[in-house]
Structures are given as C-alpha cells and as structure tokens.
Design a protein around this nucleic acid. Structure first.
Lengths: 201, 201
DNA sequence: ATAATTACTGTAATTATATACAGTATATTG
DNA sequence: CAATATACTGTATATAATTACAGTAATTAT
C-alpha cells in the first residue's frame, strides 16, 4: 500500500470524519465544498488516486459509494494452537478475529491467546479462556507472560529474570517452577497478559 | 420510542445489514429490490414511519440519507455495588457502560456485574472480575446465576430449585451451600452468567 | 529531457435517487 | 363507525451525484 500525499490524506480524513459524523460518506460535491474546490471533479480525481493506492474502494454508479479499506487494524486476532516453528501471529495460528472496541478491555491488547491446560488455574486462568496479550506492555517480575521455550508457547508468571537464569512459575500447586538458562535453551518472552475473556461459563 | 411493526423491523435490519456490509445505507430502490417491492415509494413510506417512531433520521435531499439513531442499547451497563432496595439496573448502580461489540462475547449479555468476594474462585471467578449476565438465557441446575436473597445480590451455582427449596453453592471449599426456602425468604434469580471479563491480570 | 503524478478549473451529460401525487386494500384504534 | 395506521402499486419529476472530456500548471520520477 503506497503512501498517500498530504492532500490525499486530508481527503481520506475528511471522508472518515464525514462517516463518523453523519453515518454516510460524502459526495464529490461535499468534498469539494469542504476543501474549497470549485469543481467536483477535483474530488473525483483525488478519490481515484486514493483508490489506486488501495485505501478506498469506489462503487461505480452508486451515490456516496466510497468504501474504506483500512479496517484490518480494527480486528484483533485470536490465536488458537501455535504451530511449532513460525511466529505466534502467523496466519495459520489465527483462529478468528474480533473487532477492537475502544473501551472494552485495554487498547493495548495486540492479540488474544487461547489457554491450553490447567497450569494457571490458581489465579483464575482456565483452559479455553482467552488471554489478552500486549507485546509492548512493560513486564516486570510478577507479571503473567507469554513465553516461548524451545518453540513451545506457554503462559506463566515471571518470577526471576537475569542473564543466565529465568524462572517461570505455573500458578497451580501440581506443577513446579520452570528454571531456564536462556544461554542454553531458546527462550523468548512474547508479551505480557493484561486482560482475560471467558466466552462461556 | 414506539414499537416497530414486523415489516418495519425487517426494513430497519436490512438498513443495518447494508451499512455493515457496504458501509453505506441503502437507497429506496435498494430496499424495494431486496424486499420485492415494485415501487420505491413503498420503501419511502416505510422509512417515514420508522423515522416517526424515532429509530432513524432521514436527511432530506441527500442520497442514502438514512441515519441510525443509535439507541443506548449499544451500551452495556457495568454494575458495581448494588444498593439495597432498588433494582440491579437502577441508575445509581451503574459504574460505567461499555459499547456492545458484535462478535466479542455473546450478544445476550444484558449487563456486567463486578464480582465482590472470593466465593467463586474455584471456577476461576475472582474479585473485581466482570461477569456477563443474561436475563433471558435459560438457566438450569448447574448454571452460575445472579441471585438476590433478602435484597443482597450474590453470584453462585444453582444446584437445586424446587417450590420450597433452592440450593446455591459457592465454588470455594471455604464456604457452605446456601439453602433457602423461597416461601419464607425473599429470593429472585436475576439472570445467569454467560461470560467473563478481567480487565487486569 | 520526457513522462508521469499531483493538483486543480470548468462544462456538461447521464444516471441515480428522493420524493410528490394518486390510488387500492386491510387492519387497528379511539 | 370514522379516523388512522399499515402495506403496498404505479407514475412522474426535480434534483443529487457520478463521471466523462478538455484544459492549465507545478512537481516528481525515470
């Protein structure tokens, strides 16, 4: 997707604002009026350019037929089983996507991860729950994190983290702490858990 | 807001679907085509009726000028502490509201209730969690329900329900079953729990 | 250097769309 | 029992809107 020029971006923002405000896209004349063009054709040509760059779709013949294309950012992926090898967010791991909604849970959730196993039941994280994971949230000792140990993805509490010793604790008395030397074993902390969804009780 | 007729509701749903699908409202002709009307005027008159009842606004002169009057139904209330006496959904109990989003959790959630206490930790319901409550979902033995006993609101598992004996079980070994005779004590089952949200881990 | 892109004006035709007016028929409400 | 609401057909028209064609001028890419 090529970059828009300053003017094109201005027009795209105008379209978004119009939709947000009135619920319907603007006409060419609306755009021309808003930006002071004396010809609706100026708007038409800008729209063509914006369409060519992939940001909108123009429905030919339809009035106000401007469809925004940029909604993939509004969808948060739900990750089911993580295939060994590839990155967590690889296409094949995405079970479904759910629309991001502003106030519902934190805006920092980058993806949801479906919980497998019972290793975190003591802090109320159950099998099949969806954990909201942030890749950027600051993670400190005590955080619940998504870790990847030798290509296996797991959710645990981070207890200790130093150059040659990382301790991950399952929150279930049945299981023992996992102690790893990151210089020997492959370890990556993928993100930290900041929210939880349970779709059925 | 008056009730819509079956046909009017059908048309309103069509409008919503059209917007969801294409991002723009339908024209009168679109509606007529979809429903098999032979005259666009049939659609026009329905729109007038729906506007009169307050569900939409028609922007006169504008093509596709159908604006949905967002009903407050799109906001789901979050109930904090429930004041004694009044109904759960009373104004003073509403801590905040969150927008309903289509695919995220079930559409049947009527309100969220903030959990107090640790009586349900064994099934992963913790203090401060938000429980999605449905007033209409069918509740059977084994369901987690929101109950009101002598004006106190509580979340428990429904174990038995007959004319003169209702058993509610806290999911925490520390606590004993609550056995109530609804003919002696005041008891109301307000809804059943169908989802869970945890805003911080 | 030349072509393509950006950013417009200006005019005009065609089509898309809203909407008025005139009816028909049935159901519901005061 | 009359008035109003519901649920349409059918025709017509003004206007809203897309979109083609013909230009001008500056900037940017090849």
């Amino acid at each position: 997707m090529k970059n828009l020029t300053k003017r094109q971006e201005e027009i795209l923002n105008l379209i978004k604002a119009h939709i947000l405000d009135l619920g319907i896209p603007p006409t060419r004349a609306d755009i021309a009026r808003s930006l002071g063009f004396k010809s609706p054709n100026a708007a038409e040509q800008h729209l063509r350019a914006i369409e060519k760059k992939g940001f909108i779709k123009i429905l030919s013949g339809a009035s106000r037929g401007i469809v925004l294309n940029d909604n993939e950012n509004d969808q948060i992926p739900v990750i089911g089983l993580v295939a060994a090898g590839g990155p967590i967010l690889a296409e094949e791991n995405i079970e479904k996507t759910i629309p991001r909604s502003n106030n519902l849970l934190s805006a920092d959730v980058d993806y949801y991860l479906r919980v497998k196993g019972d290793s975190m039941v003591d802090i109320g994280i159950f099998e099949e729950d969806l954990i909201g994971v942030s890749k950027s949230a600051n993670m400190k000792v005590g955080s619940v994190v998504v870790a990847r140990i030798n290509n296996e993805v797991t959710v645990k509490t981070l207890i200790e983290m130093s150059q040659n010793k990382v301790v991950l604790r399952p929150e279930n008395q049945k299981y023992d702490d996992i102690i790893i030397n990151p210089q020997v074993e492959e370890l990556a902390i993928e993100g930290s858990c900041i929210a939880l969804l349970r779709e059925s009780i």
